[in-house]
């Protein structure tokens, strides 16, 4: 059997040996089983639940309502304002992440003493749990004794301590800042991979042609970086849309509804109102939206493997 298996390797389109087929299935079986139970089944089940009016406050009567939960969600004004807030949180965060990460990746792409130290320190925000990150920023933004007030006061930018997270005009931007700080390292590392794959002779050729630093950046670096830039941007967009932890720790959706985003609404609907039907419908809508984005990502990554 080993001879048959050996014979077919490397010959494109050669028939698959029965031994290979069987052993592949055995090796894959544990993963397929686990993913079916913990990923595929929940997703299908979630859709099934979304067709029922399931409320934990009324566990014995669970009428089938078809797509009514979806209609109810789509007619809810709070849903649309949450969509808007999620969108603006995502736009703010992703823009800032891409700008900061690109700057950091460009720095780390240079050869200089201390570069390794910088890239090790870059992992600090990445490794910190989101809960601790939220706690840390909550303390920094504190209106009574926080570092942000202290710093701005000492630098004479403000003449008295201000309310930060409690100000509904600033909340989303401040949460986005905490999110950006934690997400930048990953984006930087991924962009750096893209930068390193640009052939050095492109730059030396451009230098011979008399292109200055700025032109080399615009005409070589940016176009060559496009694929990894898109990949990181889509990934971070998905992360921002579904983000929950910081909203829980920093504001619980408040003040009023200033940080009431979609992920927070799913939480409120299911675990505060205990309405699992509409909660599932909401979660399903969110999953579909992120999945459309993810589709592109999957195709790119699938082609790579």
């Amino acid at each position: 059997m080993s001879i048959r298996a050996g014979a077919l390797r490397g010959v494109f389109g050669a028939p698959v040996s029965r031994y290979d087929q069987a052993s592949a299935l055995w090796l894959l079986a544990p993963m397929l089983a686990v993913l079916l139970v913990v990923a595929v089944f929940p997703v299908l089940y979630s859709f099934w639940i979304s067709l029922f009016d399931l409320r934990l406050t009324r566990p014995h009567r669970v009428p089938f309502v078809g797509l009514d939960n979806y209609l109810e969600v789509l007619q809810d004004e709070l849903f649309w304002s949450s969509v808007w807030r999620t969108t603006s949180f995502t736009l703010m965060s992703v823009t800032a992440i891409m700008v900061i990460a690109l700057a950091m990746a460009l720095l780390l792409n240079e050869e200089f003493r201390g570069r390794r130290f910088l890239s090790a320190m870059l992992l600090v925000p990445w490794a910190i749990p989101y809960v601790a990150n939220g706690l840390m920023w909550k303390w920094i933004y504190d209106s009574g004794y926080g570092a942000l007030n202290g710093l701005l006061f000492q630098l004479d930018f403000i003449d008295k301590y201000m309310v930060w997270l409690g100000d509904s005009h600033k909340t989303l931007a401040l949460i986005a800042n905490a999110f950006v700080w934690k997400e930048v390292p990953l984006a930087t590392i991924l962009l750096l991979v893209g930068l390193k794959s640009i052939p050095a002779d492109l730059y030396s050729a451009a230098r011979v042609d008399g292109a200055d630093l700025w032109r080399r950046f615009v005409h070589i670096t940016l176009p060559a970086l496009r694929p990894s830039f898109m990949l990181v941007m889509i990934y971070e967009t998905m992360m921002a849309i579904r983000h929950f932890d910081l909203f829980f720790i920093l504001t619980e959706g408040g003040p009023a509804e200033a940080s009431h985003v979609l992920a927070w609404q799913v939480y409120v609907e299911t675990f505060r109102k205990l309405s699992f039907g509409t909660g599932s419908a909401l979660a399903y809508i969110m999953a579909l939206v992120t999945f459309l984005l993810a589709f592109w990502l999957i195709r790119t990554l699938g082609r790579k493997l």
């Binding site: 929940p42 998905m238 979660a283 399903y284 999953a287 999957i298």
Partner: peptide, 22 residues
């Protein structure tokens, strides 16, 4: 491979309700 990649992008918030009942 595509199956594995697809399961990777399911948002955790969509898993919460079914997981909870399960």
């Amino acid at each position: 491979i595509y199956f594995m990649l697809t399961t990777r992008v399911i948002p955790d918030i969509a898993l919460v309700v079914p997981f909870f009942l399960f």
